Simulated scan of single mutants.
Amino acid sequence: MSDHRDDLVLDGLVREELEWAPHVDATNITVHVRDGIVTLGGFVASYAEKKAAERAVWHVRGVLGLAQDIEVRLNPEARHSDEEIAHRIASILRWDARIPEGRIQVKVEAGVVTLIGAVDWRYQKEDVEARVQPLAGVVAIKNEIVVRPPRGASNINDAVRRALARHAEIDASRITVVTQGGEVTLAGEVRSLAARRIAENAAWSATGVENVIDRMRVVP
């Protein structure tokens, strides 16, 4: 349990980071901190801005968790029909060589984009979402793409441990790795939310990983 004074200090650090974030207008963003858990509320003008605010908070020292309740309120000039948004997404994905052609389907309803399909690697799933985030008219993304890696993976547990050990930002000795088939469970401690995401992404980089369960705790 963190001290109330610690929460006040963290509140100030988070607000300062949001003010400095180049792609975020923090004017209408609210911040609440309790026991090291940061809750962001209020509203922004785009989904990309909402995600930028989230990334800014990850890097603030002392943040133990993040609840993201920011609403996207589109400006009139940023509003587009669902059909137009879907056509734009389909065109972008068709011309992106990193994304397997014909394996991703898109549904758009009231500006909410649902991504459906299957890819070989986690980075491909993230690439699809990253390409959609900046588009005008998008208010939310539901990424339902599944990762189905190629067969023939070697020892996944060893591969994940080596991947964790390669990253200077995390202490691999404080993280336990348990694998069952293509599912990897990470437990233990990391020093920040950013390190937690680095560890999770490192696990996804191992060949044969189909799912990563994150049970790590942030302990500054």
Rank of each mutant, 00 (worst) to 15 (best):
I92V: 12
E129L: 02
R174V: 07
L193N: 06
A130G: 05
N143F: 01
E169R: 12
V178P: 00
D171Y: 02
K125F: 02
V178E: 14
G181Y: 07
V113M: 12
R122S: 09
A194K: 07
Q133I: 11
G117E: 01
G188C: 05
P149V: 00
I89R: 06
V119T: 11
A110F: 06
V184G: 06
A90S: 13
A97Y: 03
V160G: 02
Q180V: 11
W121V: 13
T185F: 04
K125L: 09
H167I: 01
S173M: 10
K142Q: 10
R148K: 11
V132T: 11
A136K: 15
A140M: 02
P150R: 13
T185V: 11
I89E: 04
N155L: 03
V112T: 09
R174G: 04
A136Y: 04
A187R: 14
P100G: 08
A165K: 11
A86I: 01
T179I: 06
A118E: 15
R166Y: 05
V128N: 10
I175R: 05
I170F: 01
H167Q: 14
E144T: 10
P149M: 05
T179Y: 04
W121C: 02
H167V: 00
Q133D: 07
A168P: 04
G102I: 00
W121I: 01
K107H: 05
E101Y: 03
V132G: 05
L164G: 05
A172F: 03
A140W: 04
I175S: 03
V190T: 06
R191I: 03
T185M: 08
R88A: 09
A110Y: 07
E109D: 13
I116D: 12
S192W: 04
R151A: 12
L164M: 05
Y123W: 14
A187Y: 09
A97C: 01
I141V: 13
A130E: 11
A130M: 09
D127G: 10
E101N: 08
E189S: 11
A159E: 14
S173C: 09
G152C: 08
V147H: 02
T176L: 09
K142A: 12
R197G: 05
Y123G: 01
S173T: 15
P100K: 10
E101C: 03
A194H: 15
R191F: 06
A86D: 08
L186Y: 08
D127A: 13
V112Y: 00
I156A: 08
E129H: 05
D96N: 14
R151K: 13
A153F: 00
V138Q: 04
A130T: 12
R122T: 03
R174M: 12
R174A: 08
E169Y: 01
S91Y: 11
R197S: 02
A110E: 15
R197Y: 07
K125D: 02
T179V: 15
L186D: 09
P134T: 10
V177L: 07
A159I: 01
V106G: 01
D158E: 14
A163Y: 00
A187V: 06
T179M: 00
Q124F: 00
A163M: 06
E126M: 13
A195W: 05
Q133V: 13
